[in-house]
């Protein structure tokens, strides 16, 4: 088990190092010089050169990479070209919206998907299975921004249960959660639909396994066999999907953020790209990569917790 964890940890650090190199290189290659972009097309060359040196863009790329990494390790992400303010504060502010939103959506998705998937698998081929499977078809097919608008129309405009958009800040947690509820539902719906299908098919596969029959031969009811022997074995593919979905949710909610006027990470990176704010782009992308790698690490640990056979493997 210790070997397994240390191997996963090692691969985590290697992935981070490789990712940081690639991100830095891609941003370097990308066309558009931030200094000339900031000063406009009519700027005089010496003004551009002066700004370049002020921004630290005149030193060799390798030195800038090292400085960037060293800064990040110490929690210093540099200064935004456009806003002239520390990147870490900007990112942190946004993260405090995006992360809770992602967790909220993921929790909703699991809350819907687990019971629905188990129900459909246990009642395979029956009416309840047909209903669940049909509902997941619709859930996958509906565009989430359209669903978001529908939610706003019904729950914000007609019923006025939740605000239609904006974020009041975490000083008032109840109001903050209320503001995140509709976006979380909009994000969770397609995720829950996919997760339900994965849960259903994984569980159906497992229920056909010999050890389920063995469990029945011991005197377990069909339900007991499913809960005690089926569910944990079906978790591996489900965990994989949960990991992927969480990674996506952290920054992938840009359209939903747009619909609900939420200042999240997705919007930040979108603005930074249009404004050639390379430092912000680099930092946010690096942060996202970091998040994805950490999530994968946690999923790996969860695999080992679920399946003893993986604890020994490489």
């Amino acid at each position: 088990m210790i070997t397994y964890v240390s191997k996963r940890l090692l691969s985590l650090f290697v992935s981070l190092a490789v990712a940081s190199l690639i991100i830095f290189a891609v941003v370097e290659i990308a066309p558009g010089d931030p200094a000339s972009f900031m000063l406009g097309v009519n700027a005089r060359p010496d003004t551009v050169a002066a700004l370049k040196s002020e921004l630290g863009l005149d030193v060799p790329a390798f030195q800038r990479y090292l400085a960037w990494v060293a800064g990040m390790v110490q929690g210093d992400f540099g200064t935004s070209y456009t806003y002239r303010s520390p990147v870490q504060q900007m990112v942190l502010d946004r993260l405090w919206i995006s992360l809770p939103l992602a967790l909220y959506a993921l929790a909703l998705s699991c809350l819907i998907a687990f019971p629905a998937g188990v129900l459909a698998a246990a009642r395979r081929g029956q009416l309840r299975d047909t209903i669940v499977t049909g509902a997941t078809q619709i859930g996958v097919a509906i565009p989430n921004f359209w669903f978001a608008m529908l939610l706003v129309f019904v729950f914000a405009i007609k019923l006025a249960w939740f605000p239609a958009g904006g974020f009041p800040g975490w000083e008032n947690p109840v109001a903050a959660m209320k503001a995140l509820t509709l976006p979380a539902i909009a994000l969770a719906l397609p995720q829950a639909a996919i997760l339900t299908r994965v849960m259903r098919s994984a569980l159906i596969d497992i229920l056909g396994e010999d050890f389920i029959r063995t469990a029945r031969a011991k005197g377990l009811t069909a339900g007991q066999a499913l809960w005690r022997h089926g569910l944990r074995n079906a978790l591996i593919p489900v965990l994989t999907i949960i990991g992927l979905q969480f990674s996506f949710l952290i920054a992938g909610g840009i359209i939903i953020e747009q619909v609900f006027y939420l200042p999240g990470l997705g919007r930040l990176i979108f603005q930074a790209i249009t404004q050639r704010d390379l430092i912000v782009v680099e930092s946010v992308v690096m942060l996202l990569v970091f998040a994805v790698i950490i999530i994968n690490f946690l999923v790996d640990l969860a695999y080992a917790w679920v399946d003893p056979r993986l604890r020994r493997r490489t």
Partner: peptide
């Protein structure tokens, strides 16, 4: 079915062909 569940395992036991798959791998 309820009465059967009380019988299986207690009064009637069963052994299967494929020992590699007859046991739950995570227990």
């Amino acid at each position: 079915e309820d009465a059967y569940c009380k019988l299986r395992g207690r009064r009637i036991g069963m052994v299967f062909q494929e020992p590699m798959t007859a046991l739950n791998p995570v227990q």
